[in-house]
């Protein structure tokens, strides 16, 4: 009886598993929490792991929290540069970094990348506004592609080091590690990490978001106090 139950349990377990013929990549993140303090000027992220089979390639994707992007293009009207109407992109990653052991195009077929939703090409950026968005994010270092960002050692171990820029958006990040063989994914693993303010920065942020009226009153009181105090201190100067 117990044997039969166990058999059914196993059968059920196998049924509910995703029908993927791939293994879980053997990889992890060095840190799962990146604190943002008053002196924050970027952070280091390290992803490491072991290759399941030799001669594989590794691709690491770091994806920032999705947000709505409002894009304005400058257009020429009657010989004058003016802002065009804003275009929006819904739920687009606020940060996107692709690190790979070799140039992406040499590792993976474009169809496989599209199917996996991997790389800039798989994001909904086909429109003029989308291309403008990509151009802008690349210039700000918030969308990055590093074709030699993953180092493989002795065909066994890999390591990806990445410096998050100082202007990196705060929030929950998704890291996906893909192991590829012959142009297709043989193993993958998704982990997450969080970039969040701590201490004073966190207090100020929470206050401004959760109690905006109180925050406004506090900000106004503070600036008026400083303004008044300065006038008193410098009263002899005028």
């Amino acid at each position: 009886m117990i044997k039969r139950l166990a058999f059914f349990a196993l059968f059920f377990f196998l049924l509910t598993q995703p029908a993927r013929a791939e293994a879980e990549a053997a990889a992890d993140l060095a840190e799962d929490f990146i604190p943002v303090t008053e002196s924050f000027d970027g952070a280091h992220v390290m992803v490491f792991g072991a290759l399941i089979s030799a001669k594989s390639d590794i691709v690491v994707v770091l994806e920032g929290p999705p947000a709505k992007a409002s894009i304005r293009a400058k257009i020429k009207k009657f010989g004058i540069w003016v802002n065009d109407e804003a275009q929006t992109l819904e739920a687009i990653p606020s940060f996107y970094a692709v690190l790979s052991s070799r140039p992406l195009t040499k590792i993976m077929k474009p169809e496989a990348m599209a199917m996996r939703g991997l790389g800039f090409q798989s994001l909904p950026l086909d429109s003029v506004a989308g291309q403008g968005f990509l151009q802008n994010r690349l210039a700000k270092g918030l969308y990055v592609e590093i074709p030699d960002g993953v180092k493989i050692r002795d065909k066994k171990l890999f390591r990806a080091d990445f410096d998050l820029p100082p202007n990196v958006p705060i929030g929950d990040y998704k890291t996906t590690i893909y192991e590829l063989k012959n142009g297709s994914v043989s193993a993958s693993r998704t982990t997450t990490f969080k970039i969040a303010p701590i201490g004073t920065a966190s207090m100020i942020r929470n206050l401004s978001m959760q109690y905006p009226a109180f925050y406004a009153a506090l900000a106004i009181a503070l600036v008026l106090l400083i303004g008044g105090l300065a006038a008193y201190l410098f009263r002899k100067a005028t």
Partner: peptide, 19 residues
């Protein structure tokens, strides 16, 4: 001058509703 000269960045981006 800004009206007539070609801007460095043709696109400006604002992210809304982050975190």
């Amino acid at each position: 001058f800004d009206l007539f000269s070609t801007p460095d960045q043709l696109f400006s981006v604002t992210m809304v509703g982050l975190s």
